[in-house]
């Protein structure tokens, strides 16, 4: 499979099980390249979200989940780190936009700091809010309404706000769990354009079950099926000349 020099994120024999003896993700090994977009795709239940959520230790919310293997970010095994630290270097954007309903747009952007008890001066806050809202292309739309609640925005705007909130903490990797599946095509399109912009500064791993999306925006693609990483290659190569027959069947719409 694909070899990448100097990867930012590495999976080494990663298995995740929800119930003992049944792996939802089975022995996945892969390296993710810096400042690229890597898409993880596959049919529902293939383990793609499970793999992604292992990276920022989201599984720890649920007591029965076991993770084995190693996940390295910058050569540090995040499975042995404190989950709170891990989550600061691996930001996450979820399927449904989830801005904090009691916070204003302004407060939402800097929520990562305020919830972690990091004190910022007014100037630092203003700067963070402006830079990150500009990064996600929301600044012009909301600059006069920064003190309004984030939940007043449209779905697509809310999702961009959530991306800004994750970016404000300057993560090493941005994990996205089907970030556009709850959005309309226009909002989806804006987010996709945004991701292409953002990869200059960030490494993005995006789970999607929209093949078109993977083809449009990703540099590398993984295809997962029944918990296994079936194929991992440059997106161009995988979509034009898949090596595995299962990948080909999936990409040609024979299942999924």
């Amino acid at each position: 499979m694909l070899h990448i020099d100097n990867p930012i994120l590495e999976f080494k024999d990663v298995s995740v099980s929800y119930t003992p003896g049944k792996n939802a993700v089975n022995q996945v090994s892969a390296s993710i390249e810096r400042n690229k977009i890597t898409a993880i795709m596959g049919p529902s239940g293939c383990g793609k979200s499970t793999l992604l959520r292992a990276v920022n230790r989201m599984h720890e919310l649920y007591p029965d989940i076991r993770i084995t293997g190693e996940i390295l970010i910058d050569n540090q095994n995040i499975l042995t780190m404190n989950p709170m630290e891990v989550r600061r270097i691996a930001g996450m954007v979820f399927q449904r936009p989830n801005p904090f309903p009691t916070m204003s747009i302004y407060e939402n952007v800097i929520a990562g700091y305020s919830l972690n008890g990091i004190r910022l001066s007014k100037k630092e806050k203003d700067e963070l809010v402006e830079t990150n809202l500009k990064n996600v292309g929301l600044w012009d739309e909301v600059k006069d309404a920064l003190l309004k609640k984030g939940t007043f925005l449209s779905g697509g705007q809310q999702q961009r706000l959530c991306i800004a909130r994750a970016l404000a903490l300057k993560p090493e990797v941005l994990l996205m769990d089907e970030p556009t599946s709850a959005l309309d095509p226009i909002a989806t399109n804006r987010i996709e354009e945004l991701l292409l912009e953002l990869k200059k500064d960030y490494t993005i791993v995006i789970v999607t079950h929209n093949m078109g999306q993977a083809a449009r925006i990703s540099d590398y693609s993984m295809f997962m099926y029944l918990g296994q990483l079936v194929e991992y290659d440059e997106t161009q190569v995988m979509f034009t000349n898949p090596a595995d027959s299962r990948t080909e069947e999936y990409l040609s719409g024979q299942f999924g």
């Binding site: 989201m58 630290e85 600061r88 979820f94 929520a111 919830l115 972690n116 008890g117």
Partner: peptide, 22 residues
């Protein structure tokens, strides 16, 4: 929604601050 708690934790916030402030 469960996603609210996840959103807080995903920012690296402690459980305490997620409960008390989110």
């Amino acid at each position: 929604p469960g996603t609210l708690k996840e959103a807080g934790l995903a920012l690296g916030a402690s459980y305490t601050s997620v409960v008390l402030r989110v």
